[in-house]
Write a protein that binds this DNA or RNA. Structure first.
Length: 217
DNA sequence: TGCCAGGCCCTCTTTAGGGCCTT
């Protein structure tokens, strides 16, 4: 089994995180699904410092279900820049910035698959905001992005299943969780590698994990 | 025709099953 966060090395300073969200034609690139939209939000020091967003044309059909879910139509995709062009721009925008996504295994699959189509490879790891939220907020009704935003009283544009809206909500969630971790466990800062450590810890061992982090930070 | 993923996590578990979460 491969962790999304193994071999992570991050300098101990104010860190930039790239929060990413894809809209796609389905659930699995292995089954032929392609990305239709990507958004990236850069956060640093608890605030959003930059954004990238684009629809993309991968030359695939958008089903009625997906159009109803996301509001992204075949016409919108047809008029968008090519997937190769958009992915190259997104990869350049992110560089080697550590990445975060909600249910990261999903976005990581599409990021790797779309990058592979332009002969590029990911150099950094993903942290998963859903996994961290499950450990930090077990009392939340569920751990869907929209539910967590509502549960925690985070900013909500009212738009869902569009890449930038979901990336921004995930960014707010990440900042909120960093603050929660700092307050609850007396940490001075919470870096990407700490999120990776927490998401990989058993929920019943979270306290022990945090004690180790407290000593390490 | 109908269906199609996959990794994680919990528990009524571990010789397994099913829910969660993403589009």
């Amino acid at each position: 089994m491969t962790s999304t966060c193994e071999n992570q090395t991050v300098p101990l300073n104010m860190e930039t995180l790239a929060v990413i969200d894809f809209e796609t034609t389905g659930l699995s690139p292995a089954m032929g699904a392609r990305a239709t939209e990507i958004a990236v939000v850069l956060i640093r020091g608890g605030v959003i410092v930059d954004r990238y967003q684009s629809l993309m044309n991968a030359g695939v059909y958008v089903s009625g279900f997906i159009e109803q879910l996301t509001g992204i139509s075949n016409a919108m995709v047809r008029n968008a820049p090519s997937a190769a062009e958009v992915m190259a721009a997104a990869a350049d925008f992110i560089g080697d910035t550590p990445m975060v996504a909600h249910n990261a295994s999903f976005d990581r699959k599409f990021w790797d698959a779309e990058l592979g189509r332009i002969q590029r490879r990911r150099s950094q790891n993903f942290a998963c905001s859903m996994k961290v939220a499950r450990r930090l907020f077990p009392e939340s009704p569920n751990h869907k992005l929209g539910t967590l935003v509502q549960y925690l009283g985070l900013p909500d544009s009212g738009v869902h299943h569009r890449a930038m809206a979901d990336a921004e909500m995930t960014a707010y969630l990440v900042v909120r969780m960093q603050a929660e971790l700092m307050q609850r466990f007396g940490l001075n800062h919470v870096l990407h590698k700490h999120l990776c450590t927490i998401q990989s810890a058993s929920s019943v061992k979270l306290e022990a994990t945090m004690k180790r982090l407290q000593k390490a930070i």
